[in-house]
């Protein structure tokens, strides 16, 4: 690898509430964020995996960036175990309630702050916001081409080839670096290995001077972002009203016969005589 500049990769990741855990999840399904368990957004694992694959195949320096309150540093530490090199935590009270446009504004400032990058990776979407918008919005601010829903990629020199999902098929695309990529969850089956020595990661995290070489906390001031373009003030959208989805229905007819055979027969009788009749849907 001598004489060849390492590719610089930035991976944007997010810490989200773990809704599969019972902690912090109210009976109606709503979240108590203060009590909920936290986890790395599951979609981000695909992006981290892609970054580490590139690092292992052609060589790269991988910096993961997250925006959130101080505990979000946990997801950066997790990426070290998978082989990431550096972590940036953007934390600032003035970022609270940022919508996707304001979030992308702040994150693109982090890219400027870090200097040139060759590849920016993000997960397809998050499990809490669920928008899939922030990646393309960062690309727009940076004036970069983008490949969303990326399933596979390969790099030769400065040329990146990728396969992206489209409805009812796929596209093969080619681009010269730099580029922003959002990684599809239909990408190669997840092989989210811990390449680094987990004990060594734990060890350096115990030494502040070592830790500070790998993780940096930044604020809006550090990255030169305009606070009037972030948070509630800088967001063009607002949540006007929310309703609980709650439980619906509750009128399920459960067949309880003396045998499974009888239950199936009762079900079919019900479907046969009710409304349109199931016979219209069956192959003759």
């Amino acid at each position: 690898m001598e004489g060849v500049a390492l590719l610089k990769i930035i991976v944007f990741i997010k810490q989200v509430p773990d809704t599969s855990s019972k902690a912090g999840v109210n009976p109606d399904g709503t979240i108590n964020r203060a009590q909920a368990r936290r986890m790395l957004n599951p979609f981000d694992r695909y992006a981290i995996q892609k970054a580490i694959e590139i690092k292992r195949s052609v060589g790269a320096e991988v910096t993961c960036v997250t925006m959130g309150p101080p505990p979000a540093v946990e997801v950066l530490i997790e990426t070290f175990e998978h082989g990431a090199d550096y972590g940036i935590l953007l934390t600032d009270k003035r970022l609270a309630a940022s919508d996707t446009l304001a979030t992308a504004y702040a994150l693109h400032k982090v890219v400027h702050y870090l200097g040139d990058s060759d590849i920016i990776l993000t997960g397809l979407q998050t499990t809490d916001g669920d928008t899939a918008q922030v990646g393309p919005q960062i690309a727009e601010r940076l004036g970069l081409p983008q490949i969303t829903y990326c399933e596979q990629l390969s790099i030769t020199g400065r040329t990146l080839r990728a396969r992206r999902v489209v409805e009812g098929g796929h596209q093969e695309v080619e681009v010269n670096l730099p580029v922003l990529i959002t990684v599809a969850n239909s990408a190669t089956p997840l092989d989210y290995k811990r390449f680094a020595d987990v004990a060594a990661v734990k060890e350096f995290m115990r030494h502040p001077e070592e830790r500070d070489k790998r993780i940096k906390n930044v604020s809006l001031d550090t990255i030169g972002a305009d606070p009037s373009r972030t948070g509630l003030v800088g967001s063009p959208t607002v949540v006007g009203k929310t309703w609980k989805l709650g439980e619906i229905g509750g009128s399920c007819v459960i067949f309880k016969g003396e045998s499974i055979e009888r239950e199936v027969e009762e079900l079919i009788e019900r479907l046969h005589t009710n409304g349109k009749g199931i016979e219209e849907f069956i192959n003759a």
């Binding site: 989200v16 509430p17 809704t19 109606d28 399904g29 709503t30 979240i31 499990t127 809490d128 669920d130 063009p236 959208t237 607002v238 949540v239 006007g240 009203k241 929310t242 309703w243 609980k244 989805l245 709650g246």
Partner: peptide, 17 residues
């Protein structure tokens, strides 16, 4: 839109622009 993770439905507005 539903906020799936939180079992909520939210009305999002952007009246300023």
């Amino acid at each position: 839109r539903p906020s799936f993770g939180e079992s909520l439905k939210a009305r999002i507005l952007g009246p300023w622009k």
